[in-house]
Each structure stands twice: as C-alpha cells, then as structure tokens.
Design a protein around this nucleic acid. Structure first.
Lengths: 194, 194
DNA sequence: AACTATGTGGAGGCTGCCTCCGGATAAGAA
DNA sequence: TTCTTATCCGGAGGCAGCCTCCACATAGTT
C-alpha cells in the first residue's frame, strides 16, 4: 500500500521521468477532489481536464476507471492511517476518541468511493483486505495504549471497535447529529467502568 | 403500488391500446429475467431486443432506466407480498416460518436491483418506503396469527422481524448455508418460550 | 371503409470509457 | 553543449449505452 507506486520495482528499471511523476500526482489530486465533491460520478475526461492533462496521459497511469478509483481510495486510507501517529502526544483516551471521531468522518466521505469500487471488485478483494489491515494496524496502538491506561475496557479488540463504528456510519437516513449522538453512546460503552 | 400502471388515471382517458399493454408486459417480463440473470448490468437495448420490441417502444413506456428498474422492483415486491396470502392454510408457525424463508430468498435475488436503484434514488424515496410498507402489511397478519397462537414471542413487531432478516441477508461473504444456519438461529429466537 | 388518436421502432445525437500512435521531451552520452 | 533515444504526452477516434425524434403503422371509433 505505497502511496505512489503500488508495485515495488524488483527489476531495477530507470526511475520514472519527472514529468510523468508530476502528472501522476496531478491526476490523483484532481481525482480526489472530484470524487469527494461530486460523489463518484465524475467522468475521467473531466478529471483529466481538471488535472490539466490529456485523457491519454490519465490512461497511461491508470489503465481504467477502476485503477484510478483504487489508487485514490488506497491513498486516502494511507493518509488517514498516518494521521493516527500524530495523536501520540495526547492523553490515551483523548487520542483514542479523537481517532474514532476521525474514523467516522473518514468513512462518511469515502463511502461513495468504496461503493463504486464494489461494482468492480468484490469485498474480499486484496484492495479491501489490505486497507482493512492497515486500518487495524493504525488503530491498534491507540486502543492498546488506552486499554493499558485503564481508559478503555479490556475485552474489545480493534476489529470489534471498527465494526461497531462502521455499523453506526451505515445507518440509513440518519442525521449527522444523530450519528454523532450514537457515536458518543458507543464511546461511552467502550469506556472502562470506574 | 399497482402492478401495472403506477399512476391511477384520474382524468377519464381512453384505456391503453391493446398492443401498448401487450408491449408493456413484454418489456417488464424481459427486464425481469434479464436483471435476475445478469445482475442489473443489462443494457436497455438488450432488454428491448429480448422483448422483441424497438428501443423507442421501451422508452415510450419507461422514460428512463430508473423507471424501468423501479417498475420491475415494485412488481417483484407485489408478487412476493401476494404470496403471503397463499399460506393461510398452514399451521400458524409454519406459515410464518415459510414466509420468512421466502423473504430471505427474495432479498438475496432482489438485492442487485435495489443496489442499482440506490444509484438513482435515495433510500428514503417513495419507492422504497412504499415497498417497505407493503412488505410490513403482508407480513403482519402472519406474525399476528403466529403470536395469537402462542408460537411466536409477543414482544416483536413486523418491522423488527424484517430488519433482523434483512441484517442476516446483508452479511458480507457468507455462504448460503451459513445464512440458512443464521436464519434458523433467528427463527429459534423468535419462537415463543415453552 | 375511412379516420384519427395512439403506438411503434430505428436512425442518430450525445456522452463516457478506452485505444492508438505521431509528436514532444527528459535524461543520459559524447 | 549537442545529440540520441527511451519514455511520455495528448487528442482523434472507435465503441457502447442512454435517450430523443419523427415518419410510418395500427387499434378503435364512426
């Protein structure tokens, strides 16, 4: 799950040309904002235009719509996972709770992307299992620290926590504040009893 | 939720011409089998061909893809709801359990259709709320009869039962037999204690 | 039988995904 | 610096799917 180039170059080829890398990044950036703005309904032509790049260039880097979708999705997951390490300074509970709240926002915005990806690859595909693994790996230290500090009950693991949050975000037709309320209830439930 | 013509004709217009009605039915039938066979990925051109009808005719009856999808979906719901009345002869519990099993099969096959419909209309749209209402109305007598006979615990209502079943069918990546096992567990849970 | 409101169906417009290849250019060699 | 060439750029165009339009056909009425 590298952010830039999914396949590590085993054969020692020449590194990518500067313009190629520049364009790759421009396309990813354009795609990310396009997808978050307009759901996943944007056309690839539109993304290319937005990136200031020809459609051929887009297809050179991403052989099809699915590939671009995946790249953006993976990059977002990485980005969110990385944010976990920035919470080290906080009190164990606060770090945990903050990360959980971030998780809710993250899931809400990335659902459209994941939803369209489901049209191409099934839920057991490497993309999703890898992303789930990354999410678990990122959350685990935060949870363990909070548990070690006696802030979170000891009988839950990351998988359960993330499923719980996932379930809450998937509630149909709930208002954002309702979600937030349910989240606070869930957090209360996770808190260690005094 | 009439099976054939969604909007009741308030203005007393002449009834539809015979050929029009015939073609309408042919398109619906072709669409139903096409959707159940190939998921919801079939093209409208293909459906028209399959129905032995021009593409223009299809569009005369269904102004767009969403309309056709909806019509088929609604028709399927009606059909399933109607099947509830055929269970009157059975023992209250058997009637209830049989209907529930039918519900699982029904949900499994119609998920693809509903999934694509979600791309067009949101989950709170009249189509879905109406269908849910029909489903509730169809299941209610069966549940009440089973409850009155002391076969099903008294502290559940139709909505809960259907949500429970819906939740089971939505479990990701479960084997059909696993689903069936979970269903039997759920049914045990619904059974009145001796 | 003739008339007309209604229905039919396919040509064609539009858009989106993707391919292809002539021209441009970065990166290394001379 | 200049040259060479592997690599990359980008848009024209093919193809498919959604949908519109309208000349022609026909059911139902007179």
């Amino acid at each position: 799950m590298s952010t830039t180039e999914p396949t590590a170059q085993l054969t020692s080829t020449r590194p990518k040309r500067a313009d190629a890398r520049r364009n790759y990044d421009k396309v990813i950036a354009a795609a990310r904002s396009a997808f978050t703005e307009s759901g996943a309904e944007t056309s690839l032509e539109g993304i290319a235009r937005r990136a200031g790049v020809g459609i051929g260039t887009l297809y050179r880097h991403f052989p099809n719509r699915q590939a671009l979708l995946e790249a953006v999705y993976v990059e977002e997951v990485d980005r969110f996972c990385a944010s976990a390490t920035e919470l080290d300074g906080l009190d164990p509970w606060d770090a945990f709770a903050t990360w959980i709240e971030g998780l809710v926002d993250y899931m809400a915005t990335k659902m459209a992307l994941a939803h369209e990806l489901f049209d191409y690859v099934d839920r057991g595909a490497p993309v999703f299992t890898n992303c789930r693994a990354s999410l678990f790996a990122a959350g685990e230290p935060l949870l363990q620290r909070a548990q070690a500090a006696g802030a979170v009950r000891g009988d839950v693991d990351v998988a359960e926590v993330i499923q719980l949050i996932g379930g809450i975000t998937k509630i149909q037709g709930a208002e954002p504040e309702q979600i937030r309320h349910l989240l606070s209830i869930a957090l209360d439930g996770l808190r260690a009893r005094a």
